[in-house]
Design a protein around this nucleic acid. Structure first.
Lengths: 230, 230
DNA sequence: TGTGTCCTACATCTTTGGATTGATAAATTA
DNA sequence: TAATTTATCAATCCAAAGATGTAGGACACA
């Protein structure tokens, strides 16, 4: 299959010169990839990316000088359609999560067999996103954990549920930064009426001012509830 | 391996009686699982879950009456350590994302080969989280897309960067719902100084009041920047 | 040494926000 | 039908917030 396509162009960025050389050899042996560049500097890597527009980048994210994650982010910002695979020595869930969050199309451990690296490259070059099974599992544990609190908040007794429909409208406008006059204008009611509603909201949410009300709303899934609902 | 462990107890919930029967037979053939219950009702399923405390639940999430996702959420809320695998007819990214978000430990398509279902069950029963490769790819596309906007905001010119260190401290306290007095007390400075800082913050963020300042901060990664930084 | 930035502080004034009380009409529910 | 809830509006009062101008001391940098 792969043999019939044009070769994918790959750029390597890894501050460990030895590892860089090793990966380069490995990939060069693999006939379906052209290594168009290899550098130990993240900044240089970004420049090379702009210059050569590779299809793929293998980016070491354990670099001291410039953080590899930051480099990935900058490359993603360029929006050149370059697909980046993160190379890391650690299977740390937080690292994996952050890499995928900023747009890495794959995450491969340096300790993994070379065949697996090539496989990841094939998958990513084919437009897919690739994570080894074990890392996927780690990712999801982290992912679910980060939503646990939010889920708990959304399902637990929520003071927001005591608000009337009108009060929800008013609160919604509050969370958009409106003052009394703005809300009154948007709802076609008098400012004093808005004051009444807002005061009732304060009572129900047990807060003292609009900022606290807005914060309560945002921290307890007010927007979520209406727009993204599970 | 599996042969030596005690059998995992499974509960099946699927409003399609035919499919339910099919899955039940399939699993019964597989000697390492005991089907402790099978029902076409989500509510009944939740009751059975409480009663029998199965290790695993296979939950159809394409049910009209009570949404399967909601049922998963309720089971997760019980916190009984029951691991739920979502069964669905659709490989819709949004569905997959929502299922994983609320704590499903796996997501399997009904059209998949029975061997794959058993494999998923083995993995999940072993404490892992399992998503078929193809669905993982879909999930990540959706996941990365949902962060694209946020990433753009964080990396684009941000008025927050013009704030001084002290102003950031003040803004941080503002985003916790403090008034002038509260901030003054916490920073051991006078209330008038706080007013000065807050006014400077308003100028820099180009907003008119504290609520808008807080909203600007939250919408532009203020907390994120300091606590979760990429 | 001077220039600029930052943190601190105060005075003054205007506007907005918040608390409270009271009242009417419509809709809902018991 | 009576009672309750909701949405509307007003007056009043006090507190808080916001706008503006001024200014001294600390520090960094050229």
């Amino acid at each position: 299959m792969r043999e019939f396509k044009r070769k994918s162009r790959v750029l390597l960025i890894d501050d460990n010169a030895d590892h860089l050389r090793g990966v380069k050899e490995l990939i060069t042996l693999e006939s379906s990839y052209d290594v168009v560049g290899a550098t130990t500097s993240a900044n240089m890597g970004i420049n090379l990316a702009k210059k050569y527009r590779p299809d793929l980048i293998l980016m070491d994210i354990n670099m001291p000088e410039k953080d590899g994650l930051q480099a990935i982010q900058e490359i993603e910002k360029l929006d050149l359609g370059i697909r980046v695979i993160a190379l890391s020595g650690y299977d740390d869930a937080d690292l994996i999560f952050r890499a995928m969050k900023i747009g890495a199309k794959g995450y491969v451990l340096k300790t993994m067999a070379s065949a697996q690296l090539i496989y990841a490259m094939d998958e990513v070059a084919a437009g897919k996103i690739y994570l080894p099974t074990a890392l996927t599992s780690r990712f999801f544990e982290y992912f679910q954990n980060s939503f646990k609190e939010e889920n708990a908040k959304l399902s637990e007794e929520n003071l927001l549920s005591y608000l009337t429909a009108r009060e929800e409208e008013v609160l919604d406008l509050l969370t958009q930064g409106n003052n009394y006059k703005g809300i009154a204008g948007k709802l076609f009611i008098s400012e004093t009426t808005v004051k009444t509603h807002v005061n009732n909201i304060f009572q129900k949410l047990q807060v003292n001012d609009r900022t606290q009300a807005v914060l309560y709303a945002l921290n307890n899934g007010f927007a979520t509830k209406h727009k993204i609902a599970v």
